[in-house]
Design a binder for these strands. Structure first.
Ligand SMILES: [Mn+2]
Ligand SMILES: [Mn+2]
Ligand SMILES: [Mn+2]
Ligand SMILES: [Mn+2]
Lengths: 156, 156
DNA sequence: GGTTTAATGTAGCCAAGGCAACACTTCGCG
DNA sequence: CGCGAAGTGTTGCCTTGGCTACATTAAACC
């Protein structure tokens, strides 16, 4: 049932298996960090806007049960991104604030970029929520370049 | 410790919590489908290139242990995307082929788009592997519009 | 101040997606 | 044909990230 003869000859362009594996590993890693990044971003926003970040509010903004949020917050504490004491709300460590700032900037850039491309606002917000976690520094820079150019009226 | 007086007044622009929750729910759902989509895309590629898709080859391309691949393939079967009998390789159902075609097109478009934006090739490949799962039809169309315009020499 | 209500925390359950270790087929080669 | 190597499948274990149900604490209201 093999197409041609015996010695496997690649028709178009064989992918280097190691590199492809590395790409998928990177994507898996980014996927694993995505939830953490969203939590930290939301906590920072609540702290700045409301002065406090309560588990219930975090859960409501993420659309999950409060028990889920509390468990995830425990992981943030374990990983040195947040601090919290019972019934006293959630706070960010320096590392947490760093991540939050980075993610806020990334989020805004990705949304602005999609809007500039002509994506409808609601769709842009939804897609950005996922895309932001897979945008490397190089790609983010490319997005910003595009935005700067678009701001200059599409000229050069 | 609340910033101002008592009635919580939002300084900049308060996010509608329901809509934000819906956005995060969409992102979670896309994240959950990502792995399935990559498996199906790889299986289709192996079937087309080599005439067969063996669990070990699938695992190698994804960079996971073969036991992991076999377990995931069982889920694909359960979900009506693949068929497989012991020691006889993996095949796709019609639904599997549909998904594979869609993901292949999406993958190629995202990579081409990032390249057109000036992202280095290796980075584009890595980022695309994650981004492709969060690109809605509307955003994909915007990417294609941009590519078509770029092909026309940046004119109109 | 006491009581109701809301928030918080805990426990136990589940599915997905990883892994290593071991057992069993199948394939290729002499 | 037989045997060793490669591929395959199974088992058991783990973490993450969901949920519900229940207990407990704090806040709000009368
Ligand atoms: Mn996000
Ligand atoms: Mn975000
Ligand atoms: Mn992918
Ligand atoms: Mn892909």
């Amino acid at each position: 049932m093999t197409p041609q003869d015996d010695t496997a000859l690649p028709e178009t362009s064989a992918p280097a298996p190691e590199e492809e594996a590395a790409r998928h590993a990177s994507a898996r890693s980014a996927r694993a960090s995505a939830l953490t990044e969203d939590y930290v971003e939301i906590i920072a926003d609540l702290l700045e806007r409301e002065g406090e970040a309560r588990p219930t509010d975090i859960a409501r903004r993420l659309g999950v049960a409060h028990a889920t949020a509390i468990k995830t917050i425990a992981r943030l504490k374990r990983d040195g991104l947040a601090r919290a004491r019972p019934y006293r709300g959630v706070f960010l460590t320096d590392r947490g604030w760093d991540m939050a700032r980075k993610m806020k900037a990334r989020h805004q850039t990705v949304v602005a970029f999609l809007l500039a491309l002509g994506v409808p606002a609601e769709v842009a917000e939804v897609d950005a929520e996922g895309i932001e976690h897979h945008v490397s520094d190089a790609t983010l820079a490319a997005f910003e370049r595009f935005l700067a150019q678009a701001a200059r009226g599409d000229g050069r």
